[in-house]
Amino acid sequence: MIGALTVAVTAAALLLAAWCGYATARDQSTKDWHFIGMAAVSVLALAQLVVGIVELTGGHKPDKGTVVFVAYLAGAALAIPAAGFMSLLERTRWGSATVTAGGVILAVLQVRLFDIWGGGHG
C-alpha cells in the first residue's frame, strides 16, 4: 500500500516540478491551475502520511527507525504546501521555480522514504 503511494507521490511531484519548470521557462508566475495541482500532490502526500502511520500501528518496523520514517513522512507532507506559500509571496517566475524545487525535493524524499521503510517489502 505504502509502496504504491510512494510511486504515485514521486510521479505526481515530478510532474508538478516539470509543469512549474515550464512556467518558469516562460517567465510566468504560478496560476490557479498550478495551485490545484499542488493541492492534488499534497493530498497524495497526506494520504501517505496517514497510511504510513496506520501501517506503523499495525506493527511494521521501518528498517532505519520509526522516528526517521515519521520525520520524513511529515517533511514530505509539508514540502509542497511550503513551496506553494512561497510562490504566493513571490508572484514572478521565481515563485514557479520555488515550486519546481519543492517538487524535486519531494521526489528525493520519496526515494529516501522507500529506503527507510525497507525497500521492496511494503
Binding site: M86, E90, W94, G95, A97, T98, A101
Partner: peptide, 10 residues
Amino acid sequence: EGPGRLIVSL
C-alpha cells in the same frame, strides 16, 4: 525577493 526567494526556500 525575486531569485532570492528561491534561494531562501532552499
